[in-house]
Design a protein around this nucleic acid. Structure first.
Length: 520
RNA sequence: GCCCGGUUCGUCUAUCGGCUAGGACAUCUCCCUUUCACGGAGGAAAGACGGGUUCGACUCCCGUACCGGGUACCA
């Protein structure tokens, strides 16, 4: 098996899912997974793209058996290096000798002009005789042109009147008419192979048995089949599996970077900054996803495990993986569902080992906070990120970032709560005089409280107070919660009080009471 | 335009000719909690359309519509 990205930027989740399926299938069948870098396009090459893939692989736990960093029997793994080694030369010569490939001297500009004149222009069976190539020219002219250093490409001569039958392990038989197909370039004028030629050669050289790739390759698959037949015979040809694409959330079309940015969800596994444009693309890791959740939801966006269970660890997915349960249809990406996966995974990890999970949360949040330098306070962090607190919060959190948000409610950098808030003034209108009186009593009660660590004790005290005034919790708690953390929703009052401690709780209530007076 | 692929609740999907069409996310209702949530229970919600084949079709075949992809010296 192999995963063969081209290093032209970060890896988006569609590409990552292809990698994941390759990995799952390879592991399931005790195969070897190779990372091959398809850097045949020097113009679009982006530095750091390869390192990014290694980084993603490490974070997600989807690891390669062989890669440029981990060389094995099939090295080298970059097509540029393979070209230098001359791997493609022998094979192109074979095609040239047998007459299924030919030289073409037309420049890109000339062909672009052709396309302007003829909208449906194809370089192929109907047009090749009228163009500048070794099929239309005399052998001597070809020789002189090459000898004098004219730039040329090598094209595949698409045979006439043939039907190519392709067997896709997912989709079954698919047929193509060669007359509809064009003469694709195999070797570019800089001597580099194109994708079409390099995949076939390298998949053969690397003993690839199964190719999982995106559906966008389906239209060029017949070319690859033909090349396989010419070069190596169909017996060695790998199984093709063309995976459906991942579509954008609401509208139509492929999921794109812009689409994701507009709606504020990530589309790359981890943060990526384009070295040329400085353009930033957000990652799932930095958004606060656990790698387990990330691979889990991506695997299920394109594959259904048996038993209708959805929360699955990697090894279970490997055990259950099979081509038969891969989908044929493109799916729309749903960020809400992705968050649900993460929610479930956080709860699961917290139950399994609260101490360990707390460390994960702590590490994530400190890293995040240190980036926003002014929010980081080591003492506060250590007070807050304790298993007892994390356990009570995890049910309310969907991404790791939510823990940091809660932390910031308790340890705000500046004065925490804005009492000019619209919600607060709305709240005030509902506040009766009796409630106000009760609030002051709660304040008195809390400030006189000795045993603040015992939340049950606090609860009883406050309940008693409310009961004596015949006041319901919902009449007073929203206000109390807002006084404490500046939010109407989110957390159990008694947790809040306990976490804040006596002094801070009382101060905040006092402030709130003060502002009421001012406003009223 | 031409070529290739696809079409089941709002979304992700199950069904490999027998379906009262199942599950999950989201949504709504109720319960739990004298507060926010979590959690639990329940409800609403689907086979693009038209023809065949068949005792029987969501499932097979054909056509139409729609969606996606390809049509580069990019992958």
């Amino acid at each position: 098996m192999r995963f063969a990205p081209s290093p032209t930027g970060g890896l988006h989740i569609g590409g990552f899912r292809t990698l994941l399926f390759n990995y799952l299938f390879a592991k399931k069948n005790n195969g070897t997974l190779i990372l091959r870098i398809e850097d045949t396009d020097s113009l679009r090459f982006v530095a750091g793209a390869e390192a990014y893939i290694e980084e993603v692989s490490q974070w997600s736990g989807v690891i390669f058996d062989e890669s440029p960093q981990k060389e094995g029997a099939y090295a080298p793994y970059r097509q540029s290096e393979r070209k230098e080694k001359g791997i493609y030369q022998a094979y192109i010569k074979k095609l040239l000798d047998s007459g299924v490939a030919y030289y073409a001297f037309d420049t890109s500009e000339e062909l672009a002009d052709q396309r302007k004149i003829m909208p449906n222009f194809q370089y192929g069976i109907h047009t090749r005789d009228a163009l500048k190539n070794s099929l239309s020219m005399l052998p001597t002219e070809v020789e002189t042109r090459i000898a004098r250093g004219d730039k040329f490409v090598i094209r595949f001569k698409m045979p006439a009147d043939e039907t190519i039958l392709l067997h896709d392990a997912l989709r079954g038989p698919i047929s193509f008419q060669t007359n509809q197909l064009d003469d694709k370039v195999l070797i570019k004028n800089d001597g580099m192979p194109t994708y079409h030629f390099a995949v076939v050669v390298d998949d053969y050289e690397m003993d690839i048995s199964h190719v999982f790739r995106g559906e966008e390759w389906l239209p060029s698959a017949p070319l690859h089949v033909l090349l396989w037949k010419e070069l190596f015979g169909s017996d060695y040809m790998p199984q093709w599996i063309h995976l459906p694409l991942i579509l954008k959330t609401d509208g139509k079309g492929k999921l794109s970077k812009r689409d994701a940015q507009k709606q504020g969800f990530p589309i790359y596994p981890i943060d990526w900054i384009d070295p040329n444009t400085q353009e930033f693309t957000k990652g799932f890791k930095e958004t606060g996803f656990l790698p387990e959740a990330f691979i889990n939801f991506l695997a299920l966006l394109g594959w259904t495990p048996p038993h209708q269970k959805e929360i699955l660890p990697l090894n279970t997915m490997i055990d259950n993986f099979s081509i038969a349960h891969i989908h044929k249809t493109s799916a729309k990406f749903d960020f809400e569902k992705a968050k649900w996966f993460n929610h479930e995974w956080m709860k699961k990890k917290c139950v399994d080992d609260a101490q360990l999970f707390t460390e994960v949360v702590y590490l994530y949040c400190t890293n995040r906070a240190k980036k926003q330098a002014d929010t980081y306070n080591q003492d506060h962090f250590e007070m807050f990120f304790k298993p007892s607190i994390i356990i009570s919060l995890v049910g309310n959190c969907y991404v790791l970032d939510d823990f940091l948000k809660y932390y910031q409610l308790f340890y705000p950098v500046n004065s925490p709560i804005s009492y000019s808030n619209v919600e607060f003034t709305k709240l005030l209108q509902q506040l009766s005089t009796i409630s106000y009186k009760v609030l002051t009593e709660i304040y008195d009660s809390l400030s006189g409280q000795q045993n603040f660590d015992d939340s049950q004790f606090l609860e009883d005290a406050i309940n008693k107070l409310l009961l004596s005034h015949q006041i319901k919790h919902k009449d007073i708690f929203p206000f109390l919660r807002f006084s404490l953390i500046g939010q109407l929703h989110g957390l159990n009052i008694f947790w809040i009080v306990k976490i804040l401690g006596k002094e801070e709780s009382c101060n905040r209530i006092k402030n709130a009471l003060g502002s009421i007076k001012k406003i009223v």
